[in-house]
Amino acid sequence: MTCADIFKAYGEQMVDLIDLLLMPLFLKSSQDKRFVCEAAEAALMSMTSWISPSVLLPKMQPYLKNKNPRIRAKASVCFSKSVPRLGLEGIKEYGMDKLIQVAATQLSDQLPESREAARNLSLELQAFYEKSQASGLGEDDSAPAISPEAETWEAFCLSKLSALSAQAILRVTVGVPVTPKEGGISAALKEGAVPAALKEGGISVVVAPKEGGVPVATKEGAAAVGC
Rank of each mutant, 00 (worst) to 15 (best):
T2V: 11
T2N: 10
C3G: 10
D5I: 09
I6Y: 10
F7N: 05
Y10W: 12
G11C: 09
M14E: 12
D19R: 12
L20W: 11
L20I: 09
L20Q: 14
L22Q: 03
M23W: 13
M23F: 14
L25P: 07
S30M: 06
K33N: 13
R34Q: 14
F35I: 11
F35T: 14
V36L: 11
E41A: 07
A42I: 00
A42E: 15
A43G: 08
A43S: 14
A43C: 14
M45C: 12
S46K: 10
M47W: 06
T48R: 06
S49R: 13
W50V: 04
W50H: 15
P53G: 04
L57R: 03
P58M: 02
M60T: 13
Y63N: 10
Y63I: 12
K65F: 11
K67I: 09
P69F: 06
A73P: 02
A73D: 08
K74T: 15
A75N: 07
S76Q: 07
V77S: 05
C78F: 06
S80L: 01
K81P: 03
P84F: 01
R85G: 03
R85D: 04
L86N: 00
G90S: 05
E93M: 04
M96P: 03
V102D: 00
Q110H: 14
E113F: 10
S114T: 07
R115V: 07
N120W: 08
L123N: 09
L123V: 02
L125Y: 00
A127M: 08
Y129I: 02
E130S: 02
Q133S: 12
Q133K: 13
S135D: 09
L137V: 09
E139Y: 12
D140Q: 12
D140A: 13
S142D: 10
A145W: 04
I146Q: 15
I146D: 11
I146F: 15
P148R: 07
E149H: 08
A150E: 11
E151M: 06
E151F: 07
E154N: 10
K160V: 09
K160N: 03
S162C: 01
L164I: 05
S165T: 03
A166N: 01
Q167D: 02
I169Q: 01
I169V: 14
V172F: 00
G175D: 01
G175R: 00
P177V: 00
V178G: 01
V178W: 02
V178F: 04
G183S: 03
S186D: 14
A188P: 03
K190Y: 13
K190Q: 11
A193V: 08
V194E: 13
V194A: 14
A197D: 05
A197F: 04
L198H: 11
G202Y: 05
G202E: 10
I203G: 01
I203D: 05
V207D: 02
V207A: 08
A208S: 07
K210R: 05
K210F: 08
G212M: 00
V214L: 08
V216I: 02
A217G: 00
T218W: 04
E220L: 05
G221D: 07
A224H: 03
